[in-house]
Amino acid sequence: MAAGTDVLNPPAPARRRGKATRRARDERRLAYMLCAPAVVVMLAVTAYPILYAVWLSLRRADLRFPAQSAFVGLANYVTVLRSGLWWQAVANTVIITVVSVAIELVFGMAIALVMHRALIGRTAVRTAVLIPYGIITVVAAFSWRFAWTPSLGYLPRWLHLNGDPLTAHASSLAIIILAEVWKTTPFMSLLLLAGLALVSNELLEAARVDGATAWQRFTNVILPVMKPAILVAVLFRVMDAFRIFDNIFILTQGSNSTQSVSILGYDQLFVGLNLGIGSAMSVLIFVMIAIIGFGFIKGFGAAAPGMDTER
């Protein structure tokens, strides 16, 4: 009914002074009323908890020793930043993020080109790639785990592997990256497909007439036009990959030093029950994500999606 009531009072093309201000005020009030519920829900579950996390991170708060709770300043941060475990998790997270997003960008672009230009079977391809996008990450991770488990799966047999690849550090990381790439390449390719739609056929045709090879057309015509779409896709995926949790939880549970920062934080909070240390990690993860986001927007000029809603 929100839209219905506004009909009585549509944004007028011709505004007279007195009426216009009242109308503008009414419009603003309606806008606030419409946005209020969403804003309240978003703030309630983020603003207070993150402040609470900051507060917890400054305290010794170990649920196993509740009597020893006390304000400890930045001691938890010092502990975390001095721990090899933390830096191992940061390194894993960075490796997984960089490698998987790089691979996804290449495959995503290839799949986007297939979906865009294929003479036949476009619908079939689009439908098929939506399956990895939609499937529950935990389900996909189980499928990969079973596929790689020697007594169970088909992959060790096909690849003639000795031993269990999920019990060694490097091969575990590789499998985590594989699972991540399989699951999220479709998302990347759909965002790229949207950018590809902006490339004009006339421009491509003109380049072809001028004798540009397919590769030249791709690098000199298609890529520049697609740059904004590529940056948005990479930004989204980097942010998302940096939070990786589900795949690792199912594939290795973080064993063999395959923890990501999120897995490590979870272990501190829910297994170690050390809320102080866990919260310090949480805050550090938040800060890292924020730095990455700002870096992208400032450094590469990636338009933050939605920041330009006013046309």
């Binding site: 503008a24 603003r28 996390a53 999606p305």
Partner: peptide, 30 residues
């Protein structure tokens, strides 16, 4: 559709929520 002050703020804030690392919130919410 509407013109109001704070629109950019709303859009920016929801973007921040969208990239929020969930792990940072689980223990306080818990």
């Amino acid at each position: 559709r509407l013109d109001f002050r704070g629109k950019q703020l709303l859009v920016g804030a929801s973007l921040v929520v969208a990239i929020f690392p969930l792990i940072s919130l689980v223990s306080p919410i818990f």
